[in-house]
Amino acid sequence: MTRTHHPRPQLQLRLVAERDIVLGPGKIALLEAIEHHGSIAAACREMHLSYKKAWQLLETMGRHFDTPLVDTCSGGSQRGGATLTPLARELIVHYRALLQRLDAAPESEALRAMLRPLNTPTPPDR
């Protein structure tokens, strides 16, 4: 029988402060989507996320930093838009770098190696 190993399992990194998840994979993805589209609404469409939920995530992040993460301008007769502040861009860079280092750490590989291969029966309860 050929043993199929898991596709490379991914670690997730979250920064928690005062019971809030300040940064995590979803919030970083939201910031990156805003950066890519120049719009919170367009980021929401790409992520299949409600506009209200996106604002809740942005407000949660914003409570924990001294400066805003997103600059917005109203739509009016012209289309509105959103851009990331330098702080938000810096957060993304540090988050991605830390995740990359964590993913490459020998301890991460050791944890992955301990996983039961796919397509093997679950051990019975003891």
Rank of each mutant, 00 (worst) to 15 (best):
V70K: 01
E90K: 01
L91G: 03
A105F: 05
H6S: 15
W55I: 15
L99S: 08
A110R: 07
G26W: 09
L98I: 14
H48E: 15
M47N: 01
A33V: 04
K52E: 15
Y95D: 04
M47G: 00
L15S: 02
S108L: 06
V70T: 09
F65T: 14
P25L: 09
P25R: 04
A17Y: 06
E18V: 15
I34E: 02
L111F: 08
R45H: 11
A29Y: 01
R96N: 07
L111E: 10
K27A: 05
S74D: 14
E46F: 04
E35T: 04
L91Q: 03
H94Y: 05
G26I: 13
L11R: 00
L111N: 07
F65Y: 13
L69H: 03
L49T: 13
S74G: 12
T72V: 15
H37A: 10
A97V: 07
G38N: 03
D20V: 12
A54W: 09
L23I: 10
E35W: 02
H36Q: 08
A43P: 07
R112Q: 11
R8K: 11
H64T: 14
Q78L: 10
H36C: 06
G38K: 00
R79I: 12
S74H: 09
Q100S: 14
A82W: 11
I28T: 07
A113G: 11
Y51M: 00
P68W: 03
D20M: 07
A82R: 06
L30H: 03
I92D: 03
L99F: 09
A43I: 15
S77L: 13
L23H: 02
A41E: 06
A33T: 09
T83R: 05
I21K: 00
G26P: 03
I40M: 04
E59K: 01
L99D: 08
